[in-house]
Design a protein around this nucleic acid. Structure first.
Length: 393
RNA sequence: GGGUGCGUCGCAUAGCGGCAAUUGCUCCAGACUGUAAAUUUGGCGCCCUCCGGGCUUCGCAGGUUCGAGUCCUGCCGCACCCA
């Protein structure tokens, strides 16, 4: 099979399979986020039991701690963290956005956490202030060392609102960075192919597995139609294994996301996977799938879980659509759940819902027991992964 | 019996003549989108036409003062010390 195969197409929605070094993934799929080498609160075994096919790690965080050399020495991130499956790594591009934003919010902190130049981005470790310089080449080098199955180019994710001029300049730089990433990646891969030929007989590369990581480009351009389209064309010209749409859900009005998909998707090759970065709420994911997106990742299910916000199916049999009516969220810490002995979600089969009441979970949150965040994370991830299952039907 | 200190919004604290009154916790509600995040924002005497305004509060009762949580007197309660 090709790296990516569409098995079924219903209008714009695509159901297929994506081949990686660590196995084949059913698309469309959702990636739980394991920024620092762990999905917060959950073990890899639990993730697997929930039906997670692939997880996401972060280049920037793992570079700082424990360091990509150490991870490589341990046999790659999969082995290091005992995740027996595919993994995508984000390039650290998002941190240019989020750490710079953080700096802006905390005006007292004049040290500055991110400095951008043509060469790359200078970061300061939020914990100890130490300087790091990330470049497109460095990002790829780290991702290769981590053993990533899907490598993202190093990009800049501009904030919203963002002026046209800034978006344009940022986009042009991001395009040059994408080219540098690809060049560096191709060089490294062809070198390592020579390496693997030498020991080829010892390597077990089955038919269902790829012998190299995939490299994805990232479409930027903020909320400007021509910039988004220009970005998509540039990346397609360079040629990537897949295409991501970045810089979405950074504070822009909800309708803009729909517009961005409308502008960009027709320009992307049908036979390559498409990844909507950082999205999103369940209805946003459902909408994007209906419009031809194959991959997602988001902190919402795990972060909101830790903060007591749970996703609950509204109906036993749901057909997720772009309409925002197939679920609701409840804040389990609310007083009204104090004596509510019903399951978290009567339509959910997860470990938390099968064994514990709302009253118990509320109690755990109110006394600060770590099990609270664990059970809530299990439930919310189950919700997201089941949602994807439904969207694959 | 004598002495000293202390009583402030659930708890704990600040306040030393202009105060509906600090801060922390608890409590209540909200936010969270390629994780800076088990984080964070708001509310927490009562009432209103809720921008703003009114009323009632700092153990209790008096007093001094234009004005008292703050000063004075007495009482009640608590803590400690000496008998």
């Amino acid at each position: 099979m090709a790296d990516f195969e569409i098995r079924k197409k219903i209008k714009s929605r695509r159901v297929g399979k994506l081949k990686t070094m660590h196995g084949v993934i059913d698309t469309p799929f959702f990636m739980p986020i394991a920024t620092k080498g762990a999905v917060k609160n959950l073990s890899p075994k639990e993730l697997q039991d929930l039906g997670a096919q692939i997880i996401l790690g972060n280049t920037y965080h793992l570079w700082l701690r424990p360091g990509h050399d150490l991870v490589k020495k341990s046999g790659g991130l999969q082995k290091f963290m005992d995740w027996d499956g595919p993994m995508l790594t984000d390039s650290g591009g998002y941190q240019v956005f989020s750490l710079a934003n953080w700096k802006a919010e905390k005006k007292r902190d004049n040290r500055g956490r991110v400095k951008l130049t043509e060469k790359g981005a200078e970061f300061r470790d939020p914990l100890d202030g130490k300087k790091y310089f990330m470049t497109p080449e460095k990002s790829i080098e780290i991702q290769l060392a981590l053993g990533s199955d899907i490598i993202m180019v190093f990009d800049e994710c501009p904030p919203y609102p963002c002026s046209r001029e800034y978006a344009k300049r940022s986009l042009e730089r991001t395009a040059r960075w994408a080219e540098r990433c690809k060049k560096y990646f191709d060089k490294k891969i062809s070198n390592s192919k020579l390496e693997s030929l030498k020991i080829g007989s010892k390597l077990k590369i089955g038919n269902s597995k790829l012998n190299r990581p995939l490299l994805f480009g990232i479409v930027q351009g903020s909320v400007y139609k021509d910039l988004r389209q220009e970005s998509a064309r540039q990346l397609v010209n360079l040629g990537f294994d897949g295409y991501a749409i970045g810089g979405v859900a950074v504070g822009e009005p909800r309708e803009k996301m729909k517009k961005i998909l409308e502008w960009v998707l027709p320009l992307l090759p049908e036979d390559k996977p498409r990844y909507l970065m950082g999205l999103g709420r369940p209805e946003e994911i459902a909408f994007a799938v209906e419009n031809g997106i194959d991959m997602f990742d988001c902190v919402i299910p795990t972060r909101n879980a830790r903060h007591g916000s749970l996703f609950v199916w509204k109906y036993a049999k749901i057909k997720p659509s772009s309409k925002n009516n197939f679920y609701k969220t409840i804040n389990i810490t609310n007083e009204k759940y104090k004596k509510d002995f019903k399951p978290l979600d009567k339509n959910c089969g997860c470990y938390a819902c099968q064994n514990f009441s709302r009253a118990y979970l509320r109690h755990l949150f109110s006394v600060g027991e770590p099990l609270a965040g664990r059970l809530a994370s299990i439930h919310n991830l189950n919700f997201y992964l089941k949602l994807m299952e439904k969207l694959r039907k």
